[in-house]
């Protein structure tokens, strides 16, 4: 131990005079909240590199260059230089692994995003900070939130099967565990996570054309492939038969959702005659808002209006729109909806 330590000690003894110089440099690496942030790793960007000379740019013709290069030579077949992702996944140990989904050569690649939606920019610049100012709850210094007791019920009894058994849910039929209401911080400002458009067409059981029309309309207005669903049970009152296709949905996220909402709020809803707003009773208590559009309201979407004649007028369906947000209560979700421009009417559901 002493032997191993010896070189260190000598170096320390010799370097004792040098040390203060190093100390002076030290505060540069440390940063307080008030001091300037560390500079970027690379200060120069490739965008600042001066472009090539004008002559070079003017004389550059990629097609002509490639023709010149290939002149008189036999072309290689594409299989020799083009990469193709494997058609089937053969397991993690197979030598030929598919590229990641973000790679354009992957079979699962989906291009995007195509722009920065206006609604998203408004949310970032205006709505988010306003929501924080509106819903912030101040607690005095020294306040500690009361510990929330177990919300699930325990299994009480002498049965040995109760040991280590998962706790029971809330009492009562249809009761669910409500979401926890966390105190509002800048990290949990509610935002729209996705939008689901759902259209139920029971007539599709007799005539599948209804289903096709509904699917086309939903695809046109949402820019997303629709998913069709079968009836899960026989319901005589609604004329449903088990296993028949009865509805279509399309789920939008990110850019598609923002564009859809902007279109709905700025173009479609203002053109509806005597539209009162979204019913105030809407909301499932977990931060999601639902409302519906009738067939003639759905026809006001610009994508449908542009070739309205292409759809059989009697087959145009209505739809339900679910706006799914991060909010944990109806009140917060409604505040977010009002901020993006959806009015509510009637008795509010809190």
């Amino acid at each position: 131990m002493a032997l191993r330590e010896l070189p260190f000690r000598t170096v320390a003894a010799l370097g004792r005079d040098v040390r203060p110089a190093v100390r002076v440099l030290h505060p540069l690496c440390r940063r307080n909240a008030s001091s300037e942030a560390a500079r970027e790793v690379e200060s120069a960007s490739s965008l600042e590199v001066p472009p090539p000379s004008e002559e070079l740019v003017r004389g550059y013709d990629p097609v002509a260059r490639s023709r010149l290069r290939r002149r008189g030579k036999k072309e290689l077949p594409p299989s020799r230089y083009q990469y193709r992702s494997p058609k089937y996944y053969r397991g993690p140990l197979h030598p030929h692994q598919p590229p990641p989904e973000s790679d354009p050569s992957s079979r699962l690649f989906q291009p995007g995003p195509f722009d920065l939606p206006r609604l998203e920019q408004t949310y970032q610049s205006t709505i988010a900070s306003d929501l924080l100012a509106l819903t912030y709850q101040h607690y005095p210094p020294g306040y500690r939130a009361p510990k929330n007791e177990q919300r699930l019920r325990e299994w009480t009894g002498a049965s040995p099967y109760y040991k280590n058994r998962p706790l029971r849910g809330p009492r009562g039929k249809g009761e669910v565990l409500r979401l926890l209401q966390e105190p509002r911080t800048f990290r949990n400002i509610p935002r729209i996570t996705r939008v689901v458009v759902h259209s139920m067409v029971p007539e599709a059981q007799e005539n599948s054309a209804n289903m096709h029309v509904a699917g086309m309309i939903l695809q046109a207005i949402t820019n997303v492939r629709v998913e069709s669903h079968r009836a899960r049970h026989n319901v005589v009152g609604w004329g449903l038969r088990q296993g028949r296709y009865v509805s279509v949905t399309s789920t939008m996220e990110r850019e598609d959702a923002q564009h859809f909402l902007a279109k709905l709020i700025d173009v479609v809803l203002p053109r509806i005659k005597e539209w009162k707003g979204v019913p105030g009773s809407s909301g499932d208590g977990h931060g999601n808002i639902h409302f519906g559009l009738t067939p003639d309201q759905l026809a006001l979407f610009p994508e449908i209006e542009v070739n309205y004649d292409a759809y059989p007028p009697k087959m145009i369906p209505g739809c339900h729109i679910s706006i799914i947000t991060d909010a944990t209560s109806n009140k917060d979700a409604r505040l977010l909806m009002q901020a993006i421009g959806l009015p509510f009417y009637g008795k509010l559901n809190d």
């Binding site: 965008l47 291009p111 920065l116 610049s125 205006t126």
Partner: peptide
């Protein structure tokens, strides 16, 4: 007074968006 119009895109952003749109043109 909140911003009234969208912001100007950084040249990298607009180049990226154009690239993605052109990719979409051949993949959709």
């Amino acid at each position: 007074r909140p911003p009234q119009i969208t912001r100007d895109l950084h040249p990298f952003e607009s180049a990226f968006f154009l690239y993605q749109r052109r990719l979409n043109e051949r993949l959709a």
